[in-house]
Structures are given as structure tokens and as C-alpha cells.
Design a binder for these strands. Structure first.
Length: 716
RNA sequence: GGGCGGUUAGCUCAAUUGGCAGAGCAUCUCGCUUACAUCGAGAGGGUUGCAGGUUCGAGUCCUGCACCGCCCACCA
């Protein structure tokens, strides 16, 4: 048998993956009978709107290590793959594509748009699936789930209905974060803050001078607020004062509220409840003293009729115009041009978020937050690394109600109908179902019902992923994999996804969704910068996997990668691990050349030295196993790397060359070398599955299994 | 404003309960020796960010500071 000097991963990998798939062992139910205790992971479903990036390759590597390791330890392992329709994200991606073709969503019917995005995601799913396979993921494709599959949507509807019935869902006119560019509301998590230099205008309101960054909102002012203990303004509190606006004179109430900072500006603030979160809160505390909020800006970001002559003007334009006009009328005392404050912007387009008063569906989140905090406090859910415990608990401690309405087209429609006949402006009547269209109003029997046009925040449904995928009447056998063993995902979606899964799962199933949360970091380039297409520093996992082999890529994503910390990766590093994989190949090559007369059925006598070598291997195997059990994959892989190369190859093989020439000791040493090497392959298999399978198939072993995937782990 | 993480060899990172500061990559020298040059043998390279403190002993524990990064909140 001629063995080539260099291992060529690209020629072997796809064939090896086929062997695994054909074996059926990705499906836990098809594993040999010895596999009993369940071990499960849900793959965070990659967005079905783009090919995979290096971050996906990282989590696939980590999860596959866990799955392959536990499978070899005799667990009944389920790794459930999926794909995310990624509502708003995908809509943005798709609209950009439309734009490139000179098309627009607004030129088509909603259904048509939906169908086109649907097809687009289905095409992408195929690409993503083939890429996941390329990376060696041993996941159960028979259970591949899309976040718009019936069972997921039904689960989301059931939860929504249950929450509505239990009073945890309310529809309220509240101040929400609105992106006038994307024409949708967001939860607080989708808002980012950017430090910006903005002029601070000091405007005259009767006897008051008020500092504001947004003079155009003055048409929505319904009060002036001062601190209750501010002597300067004491005499005005509770009184109405006459102010000169650009629309003529009017009266406005002065109120006292603790939230006002005496030291900022002049210590007096204009209150605009329809366009500022803080002001909205002031209004809620002083409803009896203040008129209803006045909306001065609309959903397009344009001035309303409340702004008189400024109506129709964009808010930004109006800001300058209003300031200029006030200056002319002597209503502007001065302008501080160097004022720096945090501007809230849309996380996607970075354009200013417009706080608007809108009716939306909210979840009363506190009742869900407490059990979620308890689950971590009492140790039912363990977070790795554990410093994220605090972050997790702190977030839940300060949680605000969750706005789950989105004004997008791509997403799960909210199953709510408004009765046209028995609703009033102030008191609308809504009918919420588990998805079925109601025939009649449950209140007035009218059939004049109008469906809500909004869709759910994608995280509302993905927050139900664990039980949506594993708990259903149709597939009761999957229940045993719930709660899952590990939720492996990025720290950047701890709030978005992980915590919401905990809250919603506890709510619906009364059980935790997973026992461990392992948080990985971001992948950065060699200059520690975030990888992005625009910077041109991205490493395409598929390209490097084709060039250097998936095993090398996986190794470089494992070593030096600590939980909760960003990982640095470079092509150079991958090249280094390509060399390591090739080194293993050559260990195999050496063994084959020097053991051509080796018979695995023989039991030659071993020398003391032989015994010691075996003992040493067992110790190393123990060390590596302990590391994996503690989720220290980097250490595990590093220990393996070091032992296999610098101990086994550099020393043990070198020293064995002489021993193999000694006819008395030869067969014993052959046995030892092959035994240890087979052990190394098994230990290495979770990390570098392809080469280990390739060699395993060719190695002369007793009781060889169909694939190394179901080999027994070298130690117990 | 609140919180978290980091600062160790040129680079990326390790260092269990405090116990001789280690790897990989890079660099330099030598070697194409019959597994492998995608390799081997060897070498250089550190006042562990700064200042104190506890201790027989501190990279590790305590206090303060500096710088870098991140998260959360947000005052007009």
C-alpha cells in the first residue's frame, strides 16, 4: 500500500461526511443500544439570508466537539439543526437586494413580497446546510427545523394566547422606539447610543429659559417641569404661565418632578410626552395636572398639523427652521454648539430613533423575569464563564416591558383581530386566537373584524425554540431531550435570545430549557478587529476549509478560544494547524511502514517501558477528558496537540525506532504504538473528525467499528 | 453615571487551592538523517501595566492609580 507523503483533506472530506451520514448515527435513535442517557444541543439556527461566516464555523466546531465527545462516551446524542427566518434582518437584506435591481417592496403586494422572501430563504437554507456539512457537523438532519415551520408558529401563537388570557399581554399606547427609515418599532435592545455633538438650544418660555436639543418638539410640549425643591422656580409650580410660541401665545402648566436635574441647563425642562421617554414618564406621574400628549411628529418623521406652518417638514429640517425662526423672534436666548450627548440610533441603519407614541403589543415581563433569575441563582442553569451570571441577573433586575410588535412584512403575523364595531378610539376590543381567524366578535358578535398587520419580534418566537422544537404531540419521543444539556451561543445574544428562552420556557413548560449556557465570543482578525465585509478582513470559513482542510480550521477555532472572550484567528494560524493534521498523517504513515507485519489479534508480551508508555497515555487521556468536562476545549486541544506531536511523535516514535529493530521487543512495541495512536485518534476525533476517521478506517485494529464516531472514548 | 473584562516573551494566549513564570506562532543557528522540510535538533527572548500592602513566599490575595476593550443606563 502506497501512502502519500502529504494528506490532502479536500480529496477526502466530503466522502467521509457521506460515510457518517449513511451510518445514520447522527440520529440518536439509530445509535447502538448501549447509548442511553440523552445529551442534547440545539444549534442556534443560522440566519437563512446569507452564507455562513467564521463565527458560525466557531460555534459549529464547539458544539460538534461536545456532541462527538458525548457520543463516544455512550450518550444518546441529539444535535438539532435549524435555520432562522430572521424577520427584520432578512427583510433588510432582501430589500437591499431589491434595491440593487431597482425594485422596491412598496411596489408590490405584501403577499408577493412574502413569497419572494420565502423562496430566497429556502435557497439560502440549502447553501447554509451544505456549508454546515462541510464543517463536519454531526447534527441530525432529519430534524432540521425552520423557524417558520408550522410547529414553531403554532407554539408562538399558543404562548401569545396563553399570555393574553393570563393578562400578561397588553396593548398600549406607549412611547416606543421607532425607526422612520425602516418604518418599524423596536424593543429597547435594538436601540444603540452614539455620542454625538448636538447644539443645545436655550429657548425662552415666558419667564423660563429651557435647554433643549430638539426645539422642533416644542409643539408637543404640555408642561414645564422643575425640581420640587428648586427655590428658583418654587413660585411657579402648579401655576399656568403664558408662553410665546411660534404659533402665538398659549398657557402651559408648571409642574414639579423629582426626575428633573437642577444642575442641568437652567434646571427647568420642557415636557414633551409624545417624543421623549423621560417626558412620557413625567406625564404618567402627573396625568391629573397635564393635558393629553400632543404628537408633533409622525411615523414618517415629519411634522404633524400640531406644528402649524411646519407641517410636513422633516423633523430634522424643522429643527433648524424652528431654531432660526425663534432666533428671529427673540425667543432663543443662546445656543451651546459643543454639547455632547448620547443620540439613540437604529442598530441597523444608525439613523436617529424617533420616540413615538404608538399602540403596540407588550409583554408584562416582570412575572417572567423572576423565575428566570431564580433558575440561575439556585444553580439549575449554569453559565460559562460564570462572570456572565452577574450580567444576566442585572439585566433581569432592570428589565422593562417587552414590545413585541414589528411593522414588518417578513415575520409571523400577530394573531389578533380588532372588532370594528365595538371598538372605540380609547377602548379598542381585540380578539386573540391561537392562529385561527375568528368568525365573530366574542363581545358584540359582529363579523366586521380587522386583523392586526404587525408581526412578532423574531426573538419572541425564537425565544421559544427549545420547547417549539422538542415538545410536541406529534413527536413525543423528543421530549426526553428537553431540557437540553448545553446552550452554546454568543455572549452578544445573551439578552436577545438566551434570557428570553429561559423566561418563555419556564413560563410554558415549568422547566428550564437547558442546564448549561456556554457563551463564546466574537471572532476577530489578527489586529483584534471585528471582521466585516466592508473592512475586507473576513475569513471565509468555506474557502479556508477548502484550502487547508476543515480539521485545521476547527483546530484554530478551538485552541486559544476561551469562553466569553473574543477569539483571534488568522490564516497563518490555520496553516499551522494544517501542518499538525499532516503531522498526524505522517505518524500513521510511519506506523504503517514499520508495522506491516503487525497482527491485531496477537497478544505479545510487553516490556516495562511499554507498560509505562500506556500508563502515560492514560494519564494524558484523563487530563484531556477533564478539560472537556469542564468546557475547557482550548486546554483539551492544546494538551492533545502537545502530547501527540512533541511527546508521541518527537520522542516515543523516535525512541521506538531502535526497539522496532529488536526482534524480541518488536511486536510488543508495535502493539503499544498502534494502541496509543488509536487512542490519540479517538481523543482527537471531536476536534479533527475528518483525518481521524480517515486513518481509523485504515488502521489495523481489533473490533473495529464502522466509524470512529461510535468508538468508545479511551478512558472512563 | 453603574458594571464587567483585560494589561504576562515580538504576536496570540496559558499558569488548579498563593509554591522554580509556560506553550504555539514568529525570529536566529544547524540539518533535505530511510514517517513527515506542511519536518527535525538547538538557541535567544520576561523587573508579569504602575504604586503600595498582606505573606517565609504574590502573575495569583488586598488598596489605590493608569491605559485598552466591552456591556448597561441615560439628563432635556
Amino acid at each position: 500500500m502506497e501512502i502519500p507523503k502529504a494528506y490532502k483533506p479536500d480529496e477526502r472530506e466530503s466522502g467521509i461526511y457521506e460515510i457518517w451520514e449513511k451510518s445514520g448515527y447522527f440520529d440518536p435513535e439509530k445509535l447502538p443500544p448501549g447509548h442511553k442517557e440523552p445529551f442534547s444541543i440545539l444549534m442556534p439556527p443560522p440566519n437563512a439570508n446569507d452564507p455562513l461566516h467564521i463565527g458560525h464555523a466557531m460555534f459549529i466546531t464547539i458544539q460538534d466537539i461536545l456532541i462527538r465527545y458525548n457520543r463516544m462516551r455512550g450518550k444518546k446524542t441529539l444535535w438539532l439543526p435549524g435555520a432562522d427566518h430572521a424577520g427584520f434582518e432578512t427583510q433588510v437584506v432582501f430589500e437591499r437586494k431589491l434595491e440593487e435591481k431597482g425594485e422596491s417592496r412598496l411596489d408590490m403586494k405584501r403577499d408577493e413580497f412574502y413569497d419572494r422572501v420565502w423562496n430566497y430563504t429556502q435557497e439560502n437554507r440549502k447553501v447554509v446546510k451544505s456549508q454546515i456539512k462541510k464543517l463536519g457537523a454531526s447534527c441530525d438532519w432529519s430534524k432540521d427545523t425552520f423557524t417558520l415551520d408550522d410547529k414553531v408558529i403554532k407554539t408562538a401563537y399558543k404562548t401569545f394566547k396563553k399570555m393574553a388570557d393570563e393578562g400578561l399581554i397588553y396593548r398600549g399606547k406607549r412611547l416606543i422606539n421607532y425607526c422612520t427609515n425602516h418604518q418599524t418599532a423596536f424593543s429597547d435592545l435594538e436601540v444603540e447610543y452614539v455620542e454625538t455633538k448636538t447644539p443645545l438650544y436655550y429657548i425662552k418660555y415666558g419667564p423660563f429659559i429651557l435647554a433643549t436639543t430638539r426645539p422642533e418638539t416644542k409643539f408637543g410640549d404640555t408642561a414645564i417641569a422643575v425640581h420640587p425643591e428648586d427655590r428658583r422656580y418654587e413660585k411657579y409650580v402648579g401655576k399656568e404661565i403664558k408662553i410665546e410660541t411660534l404659533l402665538g401665545e398659549r398657557m402651559i402648566k408648571v409642574i414639579a418632578d423629582e426626575a428633573v436635574d437642577r444642575d442641568f441647563g437652567t434646571g427647568a425642562v420642557k415636557v414633551t410626552p409624545a417624543h421623549s421617554e423621560a417626558d412620557f414618564e413625567i406625564w404618567q406621574r402627573h396625568k391629573d395636572e397635564m393635558p393629553e400628549p400632543i404628537e408633533a411628529i409622525d411615523k414618517e418623521g415629519k411634522m404633524t398639523s400640531a406644528a402649524g406652518p411646519y407641517e410636513g417638514m422633516s423633523a430634522k429640517k424643522a429643527r433648524n427652521k424652528v431654531a432660526a425662526d425663534m432666533k428671529e423672534k427673540g425667543l432663543l436666548q443662546r445656543v451651546d454648539e459643543d454639547y455632547i450627548h448620547n443620540l439613540s440610533v437604529c442598530y441597523k441603519c444608525k439613523k436617529e430613533i424617533e420616540p413615538l407614541l404608538m399602540e403596540q403589543w407588550f409583554i408584562d415581563i416582570k412575572p417572567l423575569a423572576e423565575p428566570a433569575a431564580d433558575a440561575v441563582k439556585n444553580g439549575d442553569i449554569k453559565i460559562i464563564p460564570d462572570n456572565y451570571r452577574k450580567i444576566y441577573l442585572h439585566w433581569l433586575d432592570n428589565i422593562k416591558d417587552w414590545n413585541i410588535s414589528r411593522q414588518n412584512w417578513w415575520g409571523i403575523p400577530i394573531p389578533a383581530w380588532r372588532c370594528v364595531d365595538c371598538s372605540t378610539e380609547d377602548n379598542p376590543h381585540w380578539i386573540i386566537t391561537e392562529g385561527d381567524e375568528p368568525k365573530k366578535c366574542d363581545n358584540c358578535q359582529s363579523d366586521n373584524l380587522k386583523k392586526d398587520t404587525d408581526v412578532f419580534d423574531t426573538w419572541f418566537s425564537s425565544g421559544q425554540w427549545p420547547f417549539a422544537t422538542l415538545i410536541s404531540e406529534k413527536e413525543p419521543e423528543l421530549k426526553k431531550y428537553y431540557p437540553t444539556s448545553v446552550m452554546e451561543t454568543g455572549y452578544d445574544i445573551l439578552f436577545f435570545w438566551v434570557i428570553r428562552m429561559v423566561m418563555l420556557s419556564l413560563y410554558r413548560t415549568k422547566e428550564i430549557p437547558f442546564k448549561n449556557v456556554y457563551l463564546h465570543g466574537l471572532v476577530r482578525d489578527e489586529n483584534k478587529e471585528k471582521m466585516s465585509k466592508s473592512k475586507g478582513n473576513v475569513i471565509n470559513p468555506i474557502e479556508v476549509s477548502e484550502e487547508y482542510g476543515t480539521d485545521a480550521l476547527r483546530m484554530s477555532l478551538t485552541i486559544g478560544n476561551m469562553p466569553g472572550k473574543d477569539a483571534v484567528i488568522s490564516e497563518n494560524e490555520i496553516k499551522g494547524y494544517r501542518n499538525y493534521v499532516n503531522k498526524i498523517w505522517n505518524m500513521f504513515r510511519f506506523l504503517m511502514m514499520r508495522c506491516n507485519d503487525y497482527d491485531p489479534e496477537n497478544n505479545p508480551s510487553l516490556t516495562k517501558e511499554d507498560e509505562n508508555l500506556l500508563k502515560e497515555f492514560t494519564e494524558k487521556a484523563k487530563e484531556i477528558t477533564d478539560h472537556i468536562d469542564r468546557f475547557e476545549f482550548s486546554h483539551a486541544a492544546e494538551t492533545l496537540y502537545h502530547y501527540s506531536w512533541h511527546r508521541f511523535a518527537d520522542e516515543i516514535i523516535e525512541e521506538s525506532k531502535e526497539v522496532l529493530d529488536d526482534q524480541n521487543k518488536k511486536s510488543g512495541r508495535q502493539k503499544v504504538l498502534i494502541t496509543i495512536f488509536a487512542g490519540i485518534l479517538k481523543l482527537a476525533h471531536p476536534f479533527i473528525p475528518f483525518i481521524t476517521e480517515e486513518i481509523y478506517q485504515k488502521l489495523p485494529l481489533k473490533d473495529k467499528k464502522e466509524t470512529i464516531m461510535i468508538e468508545e472514548w479511551p478512558i472512563n
